[in-house]
Design a protein around this nucleic acid. Structure first.
Lengths: 193, 193
DNA sequence: GACACACAACCGTCTGGACGGTATGTTCGA
DNA sequence: TCGAACATACCGTCCAGACGGTTGTGTGTC
């Protein structure tokens, strides 16, 4: 029975993750567990009950985000689209999804990235996730060159917006259309005049 | 007169920067000033004489690298190349320069990046540098779309190799050729079969 | 060329505070 | 009543930066 509990472990866990992200943005990548716990309205002991260590907390944060992005790609799959590159297109649309990558969103903050990069386990899982996507996208019917270019552009865009803040909307839309149009043919890349 | 001094401030300064990078790779982004100083064969007091704070040290490190990359692009400028996009091509060649971005090189390490991202001043200068390159490349005679794509691919490639380690040489070469060929025409992007 | 002086380069130590993690209680829900 | 979900207190460690001192180096002076 999922009643409205005063004590709801799952709710607390989520609150802690959200608080971690918020506190990271506010206090930089060296935030103390105290600060995160306070932000979540929990004691440090309570935090450490859910996440055995600081690294575990940050790993949990990274997991949460990767899971959320994976789900977003699923949501952006177009059922009526049966041409090659459909997963790739969903991937592109997800990467441009404003509700996922907005400025206000907790993802895009250098301090958060800095903290996560410092945790080996996070790096491991990020590599794993990248490898999964890599194989899924190359099995999508497009030429490898196109997948490669598109993936790198998406990565680069994320990095750029992480540093500079969200770029101009017009530029974003233009970039999105270019990438999507790159999935319209299955041949090798070749420039045209 | 630049005699062979026992005390050579400039040499010490460079040693400290190099030591900072080495120590970061070895001990992670939370390296102590003590560790860096020891690595450089200098006392902590000596370190703080050259860099007033830890942030100043990291900022110095970032500056060093950006300067070095700028110089590399200059070196890769082809004097016989007078077509539009020559700066862009030099930029691409520099980004693929093995002597600059090798695994063994100090750039490509997550721990180092993590430390640098945590320093606001570093972010400021990185943004500045990005803005400079942006304007320089758009004044290079290519269509804005092409510059945009190429820039993002280079960023994404750097990020990917930072996480995964250097990718396959064949893939790198292929990517390089694609990017260079993208500078062969000045028109808008459009995919071909 | 000897001497003194000024100043940069560098050393070693100290400290105050922060922070991760533990150990131990306490309360709540099933 | 038992265990999960918290709270509280505390410990050991680590570290940035301050500080006062010391050594070397060019420079002016006679």
């Amino acid at each position: 029975m999922t009643s409205v509990l005063q004590r709801d472990a799952e709710r607390t866990r989520r609150a802690l993750l959200e608080a971690a992200a918020t506190a990271l943005r506010a206090h930089g990548p060296t935030v103390s567990l105290d600060a995160v716990a306070r932000e979540a309205g929990v004691s440090k002991g309570g935090l450490l009950h859910h996440f055995a260590s600081k690294d575990a907390l940050l790993t949990g944060l990274a997991d949460e985000w990767m899971t959320r992005f994976d789900a977003a790609v699923q949501n952006h799959l177009d059922p009526s689209d049966e041409r090659p590159g459909r997963v790739c297109r969903a991937h592109i649309r997800a990467a441009f999804d404003d509700t996922l990558v907005g400025d206000d969103q907790l993802w895009s903050d250098p301090a958060v990235l800095a903290a996560l990069l410092a945790v080996p386990e996070v790096l491991r899982r990020a590599r794993e996730s990248g490898e999964r996507w890599r194989s899924e996208l190359t099995a999508d019917g497009l030429h490898a060159d196109r997948v490669l270019i598109i993936s790198r552009v998406l990565d680069g865009m994320w990095l750029t917006e992480l540093l500079d803040g969200r770029s101009a909307t017009a530029e974003r839309a233009s970039l999105r259309d270019i990438l999507l149009s790159l999935t319209d043919h299955t041949g090798a890349m070749s420039p045209t005049a």
